[in-house]
Design a protein around this nucleic acid. Structure first.
Length: 258
DNA sequence: ATGGTGGCCATGCCA
C-alpha cells in the first residue's frame, strides 16, 4: 500500500500537476490539504477517472482537506466534532483497509504572539484530545498532513535564523510533542536522517528548491500498531519544480499492508 | 530590517 500527503494550495489550480503526479506515483491513498474550494465545486471527475474515490471537507477560498482512495474508504469524522470552530475545515478522518487515517492541515500561525499563533497551539491541543477520545491506541493509525512545524534544526534550511519564529518555535515543538505523545512516530525520519529533506519552499524565494531554502513541515506519523509495516518514505520534489506549482511537495510512504 | 509570490476574489488577507 502506498500513501501520500500533499498540500496543493488550491486543488483547482493544481489539477494538471496533480494528474501527472498521481499517474507517476500511483498512491493508493492521498491526504490533500488546502483545497480552497467548497464541496459542491470540488473537481471530482478527473480523480474518479483515474480510479479514485473522492472524499471532501472544504470551504470557500481557504483551508479545506480531501482524501483520494483507490480502496474502499469510510469517513469517520469531518472536523473535531467538539463544536468549536467547525467552520474551519482542516481535519478529516477516514478508515481504509483497517487503518485509521487522520488528515490534518494544522494552522500556520502567521506570527508568534498573534491570536493566530495561539489558535495554532490550541488546535494541536484539540487534535491530541481528539485522538484520546475517539481513537484506539491498539488499532493501526496514521496521522499525516501539513503540520506547519519544523520540529528539529535539521528540518529547515536556517534553524538559527528561524528559531523562535513561527514554524520553529519551542511552544510549537511542545504542542507537536503533545500530539505525538499519544503514541506516534515520524515515519519519514525512520528512513532518512540529517538536513536537506524538505517539503515546502516559499514562493517568495527565487530558486528556493535549487538553493535548498526549504522546510520539512509535511509529515507522516504512525502508531506502534502499524509503524513497523512501513518500508520506505520519500519526498517527490519534481512537482514543486513544474510550472504553476504548489509551494509544497508531496510526501510518499510505502507500507506492507495488509 | 524589509519585501519578495501566489491564491482567493475583488480588496487586502493569508500563507
Amino acid at each position: 500500500m502506498r500513501i501520500a500527503t500533499y498540500n496543493v494550495n488550491s486543488v483547482r489550480m493544481r489539477l494538471p500537476i496533480l494528474e501527472r503526479w498521481l499517474a507517476e506515483a500511483s498512491p493508493d491513498l492521498v491526504a490533500i490539504q488546502e483545497t480552497k474550494v467548497e464541496d459542491k465545486d470540488f473537481p471530482r471527475e478527473p480523480f474518479e477517472a483515474m480510479g479514485y474515490r473522492v472524499e471532501v471537507h472544504g470551504q470557500k477560498a481557504r483551508h479545506g482537506v480531501a482524501m483520494l482512495s483507490k480502496l474502499p474508504i469510510t469517513i469517520a469524522a469531518r472536523g473535531f466534532g467538539d463544536g468549536d470552530q467547525e467552520d474551519d475545515r482542516r481535519l478529516m478522518v477516514a478508515d481504509v483497509e483497517g487503518i485509521r487515517f487522520v488528515n490534518s492541515y494544522v494552522p500556520n500561525g502567521t506570527q508568534v504572539g498573534t491570536d493566530k499563533f495561539v489558535y495554532k497551539l490550541w488546535w494541536m491541543k484539540r487534535l491530541r484530545k481528539f485522538l484520546d477520545e475517539t481513537c484506539d491506541k491498539g488499532h493501526p493509525l496514521v496521522w499525516l498532513g501539513d503540520v506547519n512545524v519544523a520540529p528539529t534544526a535539521d528540518d529547515l534550511h536556517d534553524a538559527k535564523r528561524n528559531y523562535g519564529k513561527v514554524g520553529h518555535h519551542p511552544d510549537e515543538f511542545a504542542a507537536l510533542a503533545d500530539v505525538t505523545g499519544w503514541g506516534l512516530t515520524d515515519v519519514y525520519r525512520r528512513f532518512h536522517e540529517g538536513p536537506g529533506h524538505y517539503t515546502f519552499w516559499d514562493y517568495r524565494l527565487p530558486k528556493a528548491v535549487e538553493r535548498g531554502l526549504g522546510w520539512r513541515i509535511d509529515h507522516i506519523y504512525a502508531n506502534d500498531a502499524i509503524l513497523n509495516r512501513f518500508t520506505a518514505a520519500r519526498v517527490d520534489v519534481w512537482p514543486r519544480l513544474e510550472e504553476k506549482p504548489s509551494d509544497h511537495a508531496p510526501v510518499v510512504a510505502d507500507l506492507d499492508w495488509p
